[in-house]
Design a protein around this nucleic acid. Structure first.
Length: 427
RNA sequence: GCACAGGUGACCGAGUGGUUAAUGGUAGCAGACUGUAAAUCUGCCGCUCUUCGGAGCUACGGAGGUUCGAAUCCUCCCCUGUGCA
């Protein structure tokens, strides 16, 4: 029922924490790479482990359409299906209500979609979303919400928020009576491979050396040298079912955000998300909305801002007391040639890198930066080689995950002032 | 040598008397990307200026010609491909 969340240190409003899932621990503040269709695009699972990803996302809508949630359930759930035995979180499909605006119709009951794959019609309701997510079997599932569009009039934002609250109640009701149907094995949910070894956390993500071969095979999914089960002893009793998070909406109105948070908290979830942000508003407005929600959300539960952000933004949000974030930016931008580095943003396709023999980021220790040059990465990108997307994504995720690691370290030391949270510019 | 078919901006390739600095691709240059309908999308892409509204110049193998007007029609020349000798 509960999702153990231990706060180990604080620095102002920022918290260093640990979420214990049935599929390993998640150190917070955490950045969660997005793996919409059962894959973090371009990155193999063992590399994600090496990078230190402790939790990744999957998406209800996409996995429902293909390969189908019943198939995933039949094959043992999403963890087993995608060979990922660390934590998973599935989004509810609520965001597709927003992003597939041309292909959907929203009613009180739910949302009817036209599949972007073949045009067939589908109805998503809170109950249906829960059913699908339980079949997928993520550790954390999200309430079915409506991501309010921007800009939205106050009355429209209120109505949308109210519907999200009604949907949250329905989500919870269905979830509570069906959560035991998730496809986890009795106890073997912690072991996808055949070896029988319990999942261990890999805190040795920077150990990759230039030229080191990727570990492969189920028995060899952990980087060499990983201390075994370092947190086993301190782990509280692990969850036996997924946990459902509620989602705060309220458009760009601070009072609606607070009201949404209050009323979502009344429904009592083991964690809370703040949704509907980064939809076109200014960064100041984003922070204002987050701050309003955080004021109300319980401090002893994980708080998750959905769909953010740039590196300096996630640092700032963590400093404000956010525990979890996810964003397609590092993965998508990587496939489009944009690298995030300690020097800022680098468009690797630019002609000025054609003969540049430096690594993408001289301060980064990732397997890409320790082995390849900008000139080579540019060549790969310009040549449309698949490896370009792979290497760019690996670096960007390393940068994001390292950034979060540095944030956690700073919180532990009680001082976030050294973090590179450059003031966010208005565009 | 003869007969066909051709020669268009970096490349491929439309256009076959005027609204054509010239459709499309590719290559090139730059930009965007925030719970993924995204390995996608957008802009620029002859030269020189510009108060960014535009202005001027040079261009469709070469040289002439017809015409108010030619990448488009005519003549000669050069070159390429294919076929026949």
């Amino acid at each position: 029922m509960s999702l153990p969340f231990l706060i180990e240190a604080q620095a102002g409003p920022a918290r260093l924490g640990r979420i214990s899932t049935a599929h390993g621990e998640v150190e917070t503040p955490a950045f969660m790479p997005v793996g919409t269709a059962g894959t973090v695009k371009a990155v193999p699972q063992d590399v994600l482990e090496e990078l230190g990803a402790q939790i990744i996302l999957g998406n209800t809508y996409h996995l429902y359409l293909r390969p189908g949630h019943e198939l995933v359930r039949k094959l043992g759930g999403l963890h087993r299906f995608m060979s990922w035995n660390r934590a998973l979180l599935t989004d509810s499909g609520g965001f597709q209500v927003f992003s597939l605006s041309e292909l959907r119709k929203v009613t009180e009951d739910g949302v009817s979609f036209r599949s972007h794959l073949d045009g067939t019609s589908h109805l998503f309701t809170p109950e249906r979303s829960m059913e699908i997510q339980i079949a997928l079997g993520a550790d954390i599932v999200m309430a079915f919400d409506e991501c309010t569009e921007h800009p939205a009039e106050r009355e429209r934002a209120r109505q949308s928020m109210e519907m999200t609250l009604r949907w949250a109640r329905r989500s919870k009701e269905y979830f509570e009576s069906h959560k035991d149907e998730c496809p986890w094995e009795e106890s073997g949910h912690r072991d996808i491979g055949s070896s029988g070894h319990p999942e261990t956390q890999n805190h040795n993500h920077l150990a990759a050396q230039p030229g080191a071969a990727l570990p492969h095979g189920a028995q060899n999914r952990h980087a060499p040298g990983t201390p075994a089960a370092v947190h086993e002893l301190s782990s509280p009793e692990l969850p036996t079912t997924p946990a459902l998070f509620g989602i705060v909406q309220g458009g760009m109105y601070g009072d609606l955000r607070r009201e949404s948070a209050e009323r979502t908290v009344e429904l009592d979830f083991p964690g809370y998300a703040i949704g509907g942000l980064s939809v076109g508003e200014s960064r100041e407005k984003t922070m204002e909305m987050i701050a309003n929600a955080l004021e109300v959300l319980p401090k002893d539960k994980p708080r998750y801002v959905m769909g953010v952000g740039y590196p300096e933004e996630i640092v700032q949000y963590a400093a404000m007391g956010v525990d979890m974030m996810d964003c397609v930016l590092p993965t998508r931008a990587a496939r489009h040639g944009l690298l995030f580095t300690s020097e800022g943003r680098m468009n690797i396709k630019n002609a000025r890198y054609a003969q540049d023999q430096q690594p993408p980021d001289s301060k980064c220790g990732c397997r890409v930066c320790s082995r390849y040059t900008r000139a080579y990465l540019r060549h790969l990108f310009v040549s449309a080689e698949p490896l370009a997307g792979v290497l760019n994504t690996v670096h960007n995720l390393a940068f994001y995950l390292d950034t979060m690691r540095a944030v956690r370290h700073a919180i532990k030391l009680g001082d976030l002032s050294g973090m590179p949270s450059r003031s966010v510019s208005l565009a």
